[in-house]
Design a protein around this nucleic acid. Structure first.
Lengths: 351, 351
DNA sequence: TTTAGCACTCACCCTGTCAGAGTGCTAGGA
DNA sequence: TCCTAGCACTCTGACAGGGTGAGTGCTAAA
């Protein structure tokens, strides 16, 4: 039985102390000293012993002292250990939580409104910033299409997809079309493609393009011309819903105005945040980025807790919360987890 | 010639000193003392004289001292005087500004995108928060309408109005309609009402309701049923566009986290801000609220500079900036003014 | 009416002191 | 070999005291 400390391993006692320390620091926000820790840990060891162990923990990089004679504070690695050791720690209260969320999600919300509700729920219940990406609907079923002529060789296309979602796009076309031509065209589209997956529509139209175009009727030619821009990849104007940003103000060391400002600017520009969230979408379960683990400097002092939600077993989007590194992970993690499942369920039930 | 000071009036010298004091405070951010003021004002008077006048100004409530021996700081009333005395002060640089703005406003922006651009322009050029309300289009011309059946006795109505704006509404109807019925209905609507003002459509339909319904055909009856919910007052989901909120962080005394937080919460809830902006919409020219003049506590430490913009001579919306009380009014006011005019012009040119 | 001078008042900065908390180290005990 | 008690040391934060500088109010003279 090798009692000699393995360089990267912690014995049970050290692990326990580390957990207690992180937990204590999270709740109090002050560096934790050996005396306090010895008392809190309920282990019947003296502060001196605790000091020795803390020294070890510091050597291993789990904790650090802000200065010579303050207590110790968890490092990112320390938080990481703490978080990883939280396995289904607080499943309590989830039932109540679930009810609360369900009651907020009324039936007649569209997807966007649903995301807003969920984001506000997350932010409200965690007192952090909530974030919900709109579902990346990969399977878009075309239901109906209408064309309306605008001035200047532009045509407004209205796509009704997936029962209730409506998309409007303006197409620049090479000549004027009158109403009757466009009606013919929309009839053609609706007859040929209604109920089909939008990707299929595109592929089909494009493959026909390979064939001899002269052999086709005029309508078909126009349809092909339009297909590219009509069914091409779309850019949502709003890709995620953020709520409760102001909860991040004045929390902890985020009082630092410059940091906060960077963060808020990032929220507005969205791109960096989206990159991070995109990475999460295909990961099962709750994912946690602590401090700069995310690889984005903006989140230096923050942690991001996310979970992807699924429709029909396929992950379609991400939700989560953003808060200071020193957040109540034991509470937040199950909340994010359950919320993702509820949102998935709601979206599923709509077929 | 009454040289005795009228209780509420300031002689030229005092006015000048007040202006210089405010201006100096705005640029430096520090309380202004008598010596500094005497030097800056270029009036060839001694600091002692200046002190006497400052005392007067303090009695009249234009300035105040933060504590016994700091210089003086403008009160809200002082700012108000300063601002009111700025008549067309800095018309310079407007040409350049105008060009810059024009170049940013590309032709193919829809109204929403236009508002975003303008808001970002305002925030970028003033380094404050920019705000633009979406035009309150009172004259909505119906161009085309389509109905699409959804499940559960619901019908999706798509209204194309004013050439390019598209609105989607879900109607709860009393029975199922099939596609053909709905097509008949939309044909009826399009034939009868296309090109008409939407208010007229509603009135006309409602007035017909007074008549004997039994005497009408079935289609007409359905149309009347739908009219109420279809053409009723709508609620925009996004009523104004805010940009550069983060510019408000760390400015001056807004470092106060709680204040800032209140402000950001107000931005999110929108209602209070909208109330304020609504008051401005029917006012000609630039309007300025300094500190709590707006009547909203959230803006205690802020000033709001707005101007309404018009389409066809009728004010349709409001734009402006929000910043700390100590902002460069002489620069900001003409910017807001010109921007409103440009936006109006752009919207007008679209007919 | 203006100016110069003077005494006074604060806010701010720097310094020193002190208590409290926490540590590292060492020596003794289990 | 591990744990513990004790001791000396360090650092922070709060507090008090003194000096400085900017600014004021008042008064008396020009």
């Amino acid at each position: 039985m090798p009692k000699k400390k393995a360089d990267k391993e912690l014995n049970d006692r050290a692990q326990h102390l580390l957990k207690v320390l992180v937990s204590h620091y999270i709740s109090e926000g002050l560096p934790v000293g050996s005396k306090t820790l010895a008392k809190t840990a309920q282990m019947d060891v003296s502060p001196a012993t605790v000091r020795n162990i803390m020294h070890e923990l510091e050597d291993l990089g789990f904790i650090e002292s802000p200065h010579t004679s303050a207590g110790r504070v968890p490092t990112i690695q320390g938080y990481r250990f703490f978080v990883d050791s939280l396995v289904e720690s607080h499943p309590v209260g989830q039932k109540k939580l679930l009810d609360e969320l369900q009651s907020q999600l009324q039936d007649d919300l569209n997807t966007h409104e649903l995301a807003v509700s969920v984001s506000e729920f997350l932010s409200g219940v965690t007192k952090l910033a909530g974030i919900v990406t709109l579902p990346k609907v990969q399977k878009i079923t075309l239901r109906q299409i209408e064309f309306i002529p605008l001035s200047d060789r532009r045509v407004l296309a209205i796509l009704v997809t997936n029962d209730e979602e409506v998309q409007n796009r303006i197409l620049n076309v090479h000549r004027e079309f009158n109403i009757d031509e466009l009606r013919l065209l929309s009839n053609y589209f609706n007859e040929q493609f209604s109920g089909m997956d939008i990707m299929h529509v595109r592929e089909q139209l494009l493959s026909q393009m390979q064939d001899d175009r002269d052999g086709m009727n005029r309508l078909m030619n126009v349809a092909i011309d339009m297909a590219q821009s009509l069914f091409g990849p779309q850019s949502h104007e709003e890709d995620y819903i953020l709520a409760g940003q102001s909860n991040l103000m004045g929390t902890d060391r985020l009082t630092n105005v410059d940091k906060l400002r960077l963060l808020f600017d990032a929220f507005n520009q969205k791109q960096e945040i989206l990159n991070l969230l995109d990475h999460c979408v295909n990961t099962e379960g709750v994912q946690i980025f602590i401090g700069d683990e995310s690889g984005y400097r903006i989140f230096d002092e923050c942690s991001v807790v996310t979970s992807s939600y699924s429709i029909g077993g396929k992950p379609m989007g991400v939700l989560g919360v953003i808060g200071p590194t020193r957040m109540q992970y034991d509470r937040v993690i199950p909340i994010v987890d359950v919320t993702a499942k509820v949102l998935g369920a709601v979206l599923n039930s709509r077929g």
